[in-house]
Design a protein around this nucleic acid. Sequence first.
DNA 1: GACTCCATTGCACACGTGTGCATAACGATA
DNA 2: TATCGTTATGCACACGTGTGCAATGGAGTC
Lengths: 349, 349
Amino acid sequence: MATTIKDIAKKTGVSHSTVSRALSGNSLISSVTSERIRKAAIEMGYQASAAARSLKTNRSNVIGVILNSMDDPFFSGIVDGIDACAQEAGYSLFIAASQYDLKREKNIVKSMMEHRTDGVIICSSSFSAEQGRQLLRNQFPIVVINHQASQNFHYSIYHDDFDGSQQIARHLIALGHCKIAYLGNSLSGRTTIERFNGYETILKSAGITPLPEYVHQQSGGYAANGYSSAEYYLNLPMPPTAIMCFNDLMAIGMLKGLQDAGVQVPTQVSVTGFDNIPLSEYTNPALTTLDQPKRSIGREAMQLLLDLLGNNENNGIFEPKKKVLKGTLLIRQSSSVPPTPNHRQNLHE
Amino acid sequence: MATTIKDIAKKTGVSHSTVSRALSGNSLISSVTSERIRKAAIEMGYQASAAARSLKTNRSNVIGVILNSMDDPFFSGIVDGIDACAQEAGYSLFIAASQYDLKREKNIVKSMMEHRTDGVIICSSSFSAEQGRQLLRNQFPIVVINHQASQNFHYSIYHDDFDGSQQIARHLIALGHCKIAYLGNSLSGRTTIERFNGYETILKSAGITPLPEYVHQQSGGYAANGYSSAEYYLNLPMPPTAIMCFNDLMAIGMLKGLQDAGVQVPTQVSVTGFDNIPLSEYTNPALTTLDQPKRSIGREAMQLLLDLLGNNENNGIFEPKKKVLKGTLLIRQSSSVPPTPNHRQNLHE
DNA sequence: GACTCCATTGCACACGTGTGCATAACGATA
DNA sequence: TATCGTTATGCACACGTGTGCAATGGAGTC
């Protein structure tokens, strides 16, 4: 059995209230008593019971984090940022992955509610509206990251996907590309739409109307989805000279798919990613991509949540807050000038 | 304020004990009353307080997971496995990353002790012995994954690194390589030693004595560490024809480093990884590596912990258990026959 | 010496849940 | 009718901590 403040009280000959106050640094207790109690506590290996404390104070010092999958370099970058900020502030993290499964989502929400999580960070773009409402109904402070339905939540951190996508499109046009394709991930909702919008806007303002078949959606954002799309683009009557991929994973798959088909990147086709996951720097050729500040996004989300918790006396009055972070274009080796016409011929032999 | 069993009791006109029993499925309560209470509970949106329950029952239904970093595709694969198994069994996960920082480790351990975590899974190979003892002293059931100091803990899941490394070395020798290097990660302790041992054993049994400079250690296991090591090997008077890397991340960095230096893989140098992280299939060339069953390792660890918790009446009597899982060799494109002598010359021009 | 004031500590209750024991109701049996 | 057994429910306490309020005691003031 773990030692309690009563045990300490018995040993030091004071009441348990005195121990409680001494350990929490209450200045009412005389410094000599306080010191004596502190010493005994360490000696006896005392560890406060979070359960008892949370029961009494109605605060758990725990933050729930919901994501699709841990095994995704984009999300794990964000979580690392959340974790760093949370540890500094003395919070622990409940982390659970929904794996796009509604039943799991329900279980996760239930578990977080039972544990009276002080707040929740949702970085699963596809998190269902129903479960979100469930949390909101129970007054949980929620911060969402890159969620598709921003109107449902009052506090959110977003990456400016529209802007980022524009940066990439501008870069490709500046290189001289006209036949630019966009490969999306239909599962990611708002995110892929914004990125598509950025792409379309810039092309239009440059007087380019992409062929309808240049816009292709996959239901998933993994390397395998990118790989299989390479064939799709290569089989088009007039293949694109540049392919903007929804994210780095798909771009890496695309890279491999093109190369396996004997197509050279970037000589024959340029490929770009999105996110700047750690390995995107080490592909061959290194991936031109947009650096999303993942750790910063995580930290900002946690910081916003901490602000909410600190001032929760004026809970209802708080005005909604939506923070938008911009990324920066990283020009590496997977993008270059489009091939000259005779090169383009080569592609079809 | 959240609704409690007392609220339900008041509304249904019974005592709170009856409500407690009804909701926990106690057969003493008549089925009509039980049904009525259940209905009211759902209606009122009741969610049991985990804090109160855990205070009373001395079980938290929470498992602590300690790792170095979330942002590592090897560990996140394992955590995904742990998470899946935990959710099925009704456990929630406390996850925290130490980032190789002793102060953080201490905070993590303290937090887990305060929350009376039912058990702890350590998948940080470098987790300090002192903190481990701290947990053991407080009777926490602990399962370690791939930890370097197995003797300190009674329950552990290991990947057979010795065997895996042997498989790779045999493969390279079968291809005809003699000048085989091993690139290690000194931070990973036991793991890198075992892999080195496998390498050395097979080479010795094949009558090969590697040059001392072929064995090179980096303090870190990321792509950057692999990248910078490429130069080291290329500058040797007699460079190796095959490089076994500690893990996939380093191998991917190595791939890039060699290619940036104008060296062709696998024509001039073969490169192998370890772990089979998701992206290793999509490098150019695709990486020959050893598939560690990451999700299985995670599941096995969680399952072992569940076994410990289920039978904790005979806590002390439990005999130590050490489960070893073997990986399988994946031969892809980064390994091939060594270059013929005149090729080798080319390397030094 | 009686009084006030302040510093220090203890008492008692609360948080929400689980559970051993007593109690109540009721039918069956003698 | 008295007794017993069974079934269903309530009472009361416990888990470990925090906190408002009362109590104690000593020093200082008139």
